[in-house]
Amino acid sequence: MLSIALRDGRDRYAPGETLEGSLSWSLDHEPEALEVRLFWHTSGKGTRDVGVVDVLRLSRPGVASEGGTFRFLLPDGPYSFSGTLITLAWAVEAVVEPSLESAALGLVVSPTGREIVLTPLSTT
């Protein structure tokens, strides 16, 4: 079992804010490492793009732990947005090595606290 939680269940942030969360895990075998990654990714019509912004790595973290905390400083961008061709979304994930068991949570990073919606320019 591997789970990830954000402080106060908050999943909307402004650029430059600090994101805090906690991890709990109970594994069958002691992992070599556990990584927590802050990243954004695109989804839509084109080739998928991913940007890993920060990584916290715990070596030999033990088979179980309850409530270990992590903290990331969010960058200035890119903002969470959806247009016609792509959505850019943020997420934080925890990955166990070498089993690759993982858990992830989606985030919104934008000055308004909401995903920016891009609308096509009018040609008239």
Partner: peptide, 12 residues
Amino acid sequence: MRPADNPFRSER
């Protein structure tokens, strides 16, 4: 429809 919700998005 958001691209991330489109059932025909490229990763799917």
